[in-house]
Write a protein that binds this DNA or RNA. Structure first.
Lengths: 228, 228
DNA sequence: GCAAAAGTGTTTATGTTACACCCATGT
DNA sequence: ACATGGGTGTAACATAAACACTTTTGC
């Protein structure tokens, strides 16, 4: 075995599982494919990696091209490379997942996507390629991650109520949480800063909080472990 | 953008971080490279993915070709794709990590590797490519994983003493653990089966235990969460 | 008999769970 | 006045942490 460069190479793509939260349930952003294969089916935004481009750069580029989203939380998820996962031939895909705040929600359009839209994760249409499997892995990761890393704040507005925060955790973990216990626990985190602002609704006004990333990072360096 | 197949493609490799435990500290298996680039340097076993081969199949194949190891615990770690990570050109690498028991330890040799050997993770030679970074990620993953998944048993002989198990956790987590608390906790797991066999040394004989994977799986399905 | 690792319980502190009512607002 | 979500404390229980000495063997 010498100059392995002469080998045939798989094509390489990135795909992004974009999560959002609307106050009710967890959602994902899907693109209706314009082109074959799977034209007309729903799929995650993604596309081919360019030769001089880092993987996460490619993921951000495709995300912006296909959905207009930028400056979002993005992390590599897993690489899917089953030989038959793409009917066109060998295509290996590095999957990422992104978390976006409601105020960042996109305006669709662009490149080879014809339509973009949010779908509740528990009532999705059939997905192209192996994207159902990709989603399964992404959900598993998100559910695991949210318990020991402060990533939930990436899905909420910058200022949020404790009710929203609790609702998010309940939606992702799929179970109810005791309100008093939840509030006592988060009140002990001093990177969760209470503001002097309130939201009004058809009920008692709720205090707004924000997540102070600087304070969190400082604590983290001192060995603090987030857990909720 | 139409037939993206015409794009230039990165080359695709797999690399394996192989962990072992010798009773003292954590070790990794390195290959001394015979070929350029980095000829003579140490690197993780790995090589190019074939066109019709799944990624984990490629990782197992390279592992066996370069080290003789087979039937080991293997899991995908992360995909490294910085444009300049390989001086030959664009090479994206899907990294895996493997855990091997002392009784599986290899006999070296094969293909484009000239020499294989175990090295303590805390006193490694300089590594080729971005393998120092790969190792950092692998260690972080192993330390995280061992606390909430029963993967430690993949690094011990099939029959082991509680002293060995504790030593393993201490080596990976990098801190001492109270013997009585540790033993009480593991004694409560009924997938840790005490045997009627003992090892003798220049001290009191120690009871051997084995990990009962069937019992563990059964508990896991009922919602049990391993944590140590 | 000494060195070396195995083995064994109790107490204290900490964290987790369960649980019910009043408050402030909009309609 | 009623519906809606916001906000609050305490007791029982479970888990984690700290801590020292005896046992068995090889040399």
């Amino acid at each position: 075995m010498a100059f392995t460069y002469d080998y045939a190479r798989p094509a390489l793509t990135v795909d992004c599982v974009v999560f959002g939260f609307d106050g009710g349930g967890l959602q994902v952003l899907l693109i209706r494919r314009a082109l074959e294969p799977f034209a007309g089916s729903w799929a995650f935004p993604g596309g081919f990696v360019e030769m001089d481009e880092d993987l996460d750069v490619a993921a951000r580029r495709e995300l912006e091209e296909e959905t207009g989203l930028r400056d979002v939380f993005l992390e590599q998820l897993y690489t899917f490379g089953a030989p038959a996962r793409d009917p066109r031939g060998r295509v290996v895909s590095v999957a990422y997942y992104a978390l976006v705040r409601p105020d960042q929600h996109p305006a669709a359009g662009g490149s080879d996507a014809s339509e973009a839209g949010w779908h509740a994760v528990d009532e999705l249409p059939g997905l192209a390629f192996d994207h159902a499997e990709v989603l399964r892995v992404a959900l598993e990761r998100l559910r695991g991650k949210i318990r020991y890393q402060p990533v939930g704040f990436e899905l909420l507005p910058k200022r949020f109520t404790l009710g929203q925060l609790q609702g998010l955790y309940e939606a992702i973990l799929g179970r109810g949480i005791d309100k008093r216990n939840f509030r006592r626990k988060v009140a002990a985190f001093d990177f969760l800063v209470p503001l002097e602002e309130f939201v009004r609704g058809r009920h008692r006004p709720a205090r707004l909080y924000r997540f102070d990333r600087r304070k969190y990072r400082a604590l983290e360096k001192r060995g603090f472990l987030f857990e909720l």
